[in-house]
Nucleic acid binder design. Sequence first.
DNA 1: CTGTTAGCGCCTTCAT
DNA 2: ATGAAGGCGCTAACAG
Lengths: 315, 315
Amino acid sequence: MNKRLTIKDIARLSGVGKSTVSRVLNNESGVNERTRERVEAVMQEQGFSPSRSARAMRGQSDKVVAIIVTRLDSLSENLAVQTMLPVFYAEGYDPIMMESQFSPALIAEHLRMLRSRNIDGVVIFGFSGVTPEMLQPWQPSLVLVARDASGFASVCYDDEGAMQLLLQRLYDMGHRHISFLGVPDSDITTGLRRHQAYLDFCARHQLTPHVVQPGLTMVNSYENFTRTLTPDTTAVVCGTDTMALGAGKYLHQHPELRIQLASIGYTPLIAFLHPDLVGVSLGYAEAGRKAAVQLMGQITRQAELKQIVIPATLN
Amino acid sequence: MNKRLTIKDIARLSGVGKSTVSRVLNNESGVNERTRERVEAVMQEQGFSPSRSARAMRGQSDKVVAIIVTRLDSLSENLAVQTMLPVFYAEGYDPIMMESQFSPALIAEHLRMLRSRNIDGVVIFGFSGVTPEMLQPWQPSLVLVARDASGFASVCYDDEGAMQLLLQRLYDMGHRHISFLGVPDSDITTGLRRHQAYLDFCARHQLTPHVVQPGLTMVNSYENFTRTLTPDTTAVVCGTDTMALGAGKYLHQHPELRIQLASIGYTPLIAFLHPDLVGVSLGYAEAGRKAAVQLMGQITRQAELKQIVIPATLN
DNA sequence: CTGTTAGCGCCTTCAT
DNA sequence: ATGAAGGCGCTAACAG
């Protein structure tokens, strides 16, 4: 590892002082155009890049942000992270990743190590169990995704809107007996909110609700699918695409049942396996981008702590 | 943001000199036990943690490694990354993530920015297109996953072994006419190697091979499934679990075909949708852990550049 | 406009 | 066993 060159070297090589090099580096005004060009040329040809640690020490920030996902193999979160990375890199920030595994204790531990690590900001994918108290110290430099909490910046999905979109479409298709196969209410967003939106729609349109909330896995959904069926049922809305997969398997095995399936969450897999399922997309990519931009705003420009809602779209 | 305390503060608070605090911090020998305890107590109660940037500048490393995945939403890579993260954190290294999107150009660009960023090491998930030349500068502090290259440390899956395992099982079940539905040979590992292993097995057991390699997507596999069928065919091995999903959809739609499905790659989803598919696991979790340990070894202990192969296991 | 001079927080001789 | 002093690469006053 030959020693990297420093601004001092660049200064010497281009016959100027260190500070001038520093000014060029930071695009500061007040540098002779000729000098600037000369210095930049030298930096180019030497492939010079300033030491982050040194800059970090002088200023305050390491230019590092953390992204805490619930699980690395969560498809929806991945789609969001995918769009945040470029935003962070574009602003010169390094994103480090951590997994919370749905454990508040782990979140707390991670946040502790992040503080000692002098991180600039955090994006946290929320879940039932993260309390505002534990996030408090990070409030100014934190963006919550998929959950909201008063006083915190957040990017949320429009659960009500998504369910509304789905049901309206089914209604327009002529369905009047639509069952709900969802996640238990213990999960605020994927469970309670979607459940509630379903009930609301039914009330508004004088439909008789029929609800089953067996759990959140494919197996839960598969094994309890029959419970969603009344003699009149013509359509079933699933709370998540995972549940739709469970329901879909049942329907594949019972082709005689002519039930229209619908679900919140539309993945390539679902589209492939169940082409005529009615799905809404929650806008993960959009959410990721917005969250990253919001965090950058908070960190670099003291932007206000907005609570953003991503609109859902029918597929 | 109240300014963090420094070793100077700790020194003052515990009535010793900066250097003593530094020694305690680094567990250096030659410090009076009493003094050490006192200093440690103060650090504890003040919740002190040294500035990484300052240490980094003072010659040590930033303790940052990069993980370059092909795509964040690759399930197999996620499973591997999942096990590497804890290893890195345990050694005090921060893992930053990047996506190559199967683009050699992107890899090159990332590596360039990583060098300027003064990263300590890199894990790269390989794919056809990454050439040893572009990796050369990182050779001592690089671990390749899913590909190998002479002179580089790597952690690979046992494609031949996996295929062998699969075919042997089918053979033991009595199948003598087994078709291969795989990825094109342009992909060295998931395509060529598995294809070759299939041919080898057929030759050894005097079976007539029947090969179809339409592409790597579910749709490719679904639309070309019939081409795998000869009048005698009783089983089909799929090169990847993705292809198995395509084949599985076709079979679900044609229950009259009694074809035994098998595939390399065994996911919870496959297990759920096709319980009687014969699958082998490539050992992603194991691979991730090994890769991380190997990289740490190279960085902190100049460990030799081993080429590790993870054994496949039948499910 | 540009060079000089101080440090930032830490580690490392070198004295004590 | 411990403290004082110097310097890592950079930025931010302050002079010229």
